[in-house]
Amino acid sequence: MKFSIRKATKEDMAQVLHLIHELAIFEKEENAVEVRVEDLVKDGFGPTPLFQCFVAETSEGIKGLALVYARYSTWKGPTLHLEDLIVTEKMRGTGMGTALLNEVIRYGHALGVKRINWEVLDWNEPAIAFYESKGANVMRNWDVVHLDEKGIQNYIRKI
């Protein structure tokens, strides 16, 4: 099936949210998604966009996405974070993931970033193999640290 890659628009955010939910189910966190279409529109297309999103589109609609945002490394300088690269199950193995990753790499290169980083679940061996085949270094000796909204509130109460 043919597809094209382009920057997302506000009008794409309902389909983007659908893919985010699909990823959450795949990652066994189906009830964790709190973001709404309105949030994606406000956060991605407001006066100070918080992210850039690329979509992979077929004649049947959006079947993949890559969502990125700027970060800063105290060791390297400007970096880009790939929050999610999602390809709907039916389209895996078609080159869509590679095309989306290519777009992210081109975008980061054009911005002049020193590094592009992302996380992958340690049990997602197909994704790990995919990223390693592209030359990415999967750093298994680092742990991701999160402080969620409730944790932030608890922390604030203690200081």
Rank of each mutant, 00 (worst) to 15 (best):
G64Y: 08
V55W: 10
D143Q: 08
V120C: 13
G112Q: 04
R140C: 06
E11P: 01
G93R: 00
K114V: 00
L19I: 01
K28P: 04
T94N: 05
Y69T: 03
V87F: 02
T58C: 12
E83D: 12
K7G: 03
K150C: 05
I152M: 15
M91T: 06
R36I: 09
A129I: 11
G64F: 12
T94Y: 06
I20P: 09
E149L: 11
I159P: 09
V41N: 04
Y131S: 07
A127W: 04
M13D: 04
G77M: 08
D12H: 03
V68T: 12
E89G: 05
D148N: 12
I159N: 13
E119Y: 09
N117P: 03
V35L: 03
E38I: 05
A24F: 02
G112K: 04
R106H: 11
K90G: 12
W142V: 09
K76V: 09
K7E: 15
R140D: 07
L147K: 01
L23S: 02
E30D: 15
S59Y: 10
G93M: 02
D122V: 05
A14R: 07
A70R: 13
K76C: 04
R157E: 15
P126D: 09
A129L: 13
P126E: 11
S73W: 08
L80D: 13
E89N: 11
H109R: 15
E132P: 00
E119A: 10
A129R: 12
